[in-house]
């Protein structure tokens, strides 16, 4: 049993190593992607910088502007991280289909959970590094006041919250199995819905209905709220334990649910011939 688990874990590194190699080989694209993300994040944070000039009067004090900058910056960064994790996991099928390797990966003697574990590990590391680069640029550009920040509780809640997003990502990865031609675009709909209802750029409880009610079911909302509380208010793990426990519980439900949904999708794909490389 333990031998089997060891073998599966070692096999899961195949996906980590392959994705690292792909990232290195597509380094030009990675540079473009980072620049695009930095530009997007800066554009969002600049909204706060220019809020007074936009309304023609000093609606907010300098301190409030700084708080808004931090609020939006955290929203942009955390969302970027969660989106990278979600995309990396949900793209595990689209990538293989695009490269034409899907049949070889699916006929290899590795469990689908091994495949997913490998993709998830890579997504966490990749998402973290990617976000760190954007964070450095934003901190330098806006001289954010992080003196109150509790980085440990922020990192912990980010890690715990990633688990739920991985579960949703696995469900999303089923779409390219069922719909070879448009499945990948469908995963973007899930992502867009999450960004809309999770209080990324506006506090979730301040959103209009029905978005505020819908946000209750989004794990991303609690990750973003928790990280804001940790980085702006300096809340500790003890202060955030309820959110962490909730996120952990959501992850424990969403990961097996994602694997089950994916397994149904795989069976359907094998019955209908949708694993063909060209779709």
């Amino acid at each position: 049993m333990s031998l089997e688990i060891t073998r599966e874990l070692r096999s899961s590194y195949a996906f980590v190593e392959r994705n690292i190699n792909l990232t290195k080989r597509y380094w030009g694209w990675e540079v473009v992607w980072i620049l695009y993300t930095v530009a997007n994040s800066l554009a969002v944070v600049l909204i706060a910088q220019g809020v007074n000039s936009s309304v023609g009067s000093a609606a907010l004090t300098d301190t409030q502007v700084d708080q808004l900058i931090l609020f939006l910056a955290i929203g942009a960064l955390v969302w970027h991280y969660l989106a990278v994790v979600f995309e990396t996991v949900s793209d595990m099928i689209s990538l293989e289909r695009w490269e034409g390797t899907i049949e070889y990966t699916f006929m290899a003697p590795v469990g689908r959970s091994t495949h997913m574990v490998g993709s998830a590990i890579f997504s966490l590391v990749y998402g973290f590094l990617h976000t760190a680069v954007v964070l450095v640029v934003i901190v330098l550009a806006f001289r954010l006041d992080m003196s109150n920040a509790n980085y440990f509780s922020a990192a912990l809640i980010l890690l715990v919250g990633s688990v739920s997003l991985i579960g949703i990502g696995i469900m999303g990865a089923t779409l390219p199995l069922l719909f070879p031609e448009r499945g990948m675009q469908m995963t973007h709909v899930i992502q867009a819905t999450l960004v809309l209802i999770s209080g990324v750029y506006i506090a979730a409880d301040q959103m209009p209905e029905p978005l505020a009610s819908l946000s209750v079911v989004s794990p991303a909302r609690y990750v973003i709220e928790g990280i804001r509380a940790a980085l702006i208010e300096g809340e500790s793990v003890a202060d955030l334990w309820r959110s962490m426990l909730g996120l952990l519980a959501a992850g424990l439900v969403l990961i097996p649910a994602g694997v089950q949904v994916f397994s149904w999708g795989e069976r359907y794909a094998k019955r209908t011939g949708r694993l063909k490389r060209s779709g």
């Binding site: 073998r7 195949a14 190699n21 390797t101």
Partner: peptide
């Protein structure tokens, strides 16, 4: 169709395959 990750080298592609097959 020799289906591979096109940007990866034969060594990288085959190492991926080798790891999948333990």
């Amino acid at each position: 169709e020799p289906s591979f990750f096109k940007k990866l080298s034969p060594m990288e592609n085959l190492m991926y395959g080798a790891r999948l097959y333990s």
